[in-house]
Amino acid sequence: MSSNAKTLSATASNPKPAAFNQVRFLRNCFTGYVVLFFIYLAAPLIAAGAFAFNDSMFPALPWQGFTLDWFFSDTEPKLGMFHDRRLLSGLSISFWVALTVAIMSIVVGTCNAFLFERMDFPFKSFCYIMMVIPLVIPGVILGISILVFASDIANGMEDNWGIDIESLRPGLLLVILGQFSFVTTITTLVIAARLKKFDIQLEEAALNLGASRARILRTVTLPFLKPALIGAGVVGFLISFENFNTTLMLVGSDAPLTITMYDRMAKVGSTPVLNAVSFFLMIGSGLLALLSVFVQRDKN
């Protein structure tokens, strides 16, 4: 029996039909509310995606018929996203930035997970709080703090030694560092949660059988962590790819996709090519999400 049926029978202890109708009415209201809520969740996503296929110059009604021009057309004014050089360059910059951030944050996140799950050291709980803090600092603040710090170093170098370090000025290195600074907290939490479930006796058994520490790590512990590593990588990649607030403060002349899209949205009257990009992003992140769910379920 579902929990609701139990509550129901408990409420209607003397089964008067009127009371029963009232319960049913309330229950239908509740279901209706839940349905409305999911429409609310879906509405903007559908609106952003559907108009990618509208054969019109504006992402608006009326519906002018189905087209794939906003993806594949190679002529102005209906330039499709796969022929729009700025959007494509944004896409590839975002891809490389996200890949770098994901790899860096997996490596550091794994070290952190071992540090907090396996080691005991003074000020451990303080360090744990420090590890969590990047997640609660607003992205804009993370952005300006790294911007200020990098400029301080760059200016100091230039004033004292006359060395101009171009990469410490706003640009991709700072974007990567800015995103890495908080994505690492997320990967650490994901990997540590998995490491916590690891049975330490497995390692001890391998040790007794004469395996070296490095070999145990490679053949026992890391394979156990693999689903979490992949899951953390996917999450890190997506968060980096979609990040806007921190990136905005640190971006130089090479703009990632979110910045390019934002510029189009804010300044130029947008054409449905932005809907096409939105659709593409939704499908891409949907597939990645499925991948991570699949990988993590496989091992359970």
Partner: peptide, 21 residues
């Protein structure tokens, strides 16, 4: 899982969806 979907979609795309609406 349905509740989690918006998390996987960029903030920018979500806001754009509201603008279109």
């Amino acid at each position: 899982l349905l509740c989690l979907i918006p998390l996987w979609v960029s903030d920018l795309v979500r806001s754009f969806g509201w603008i279109v609406l």
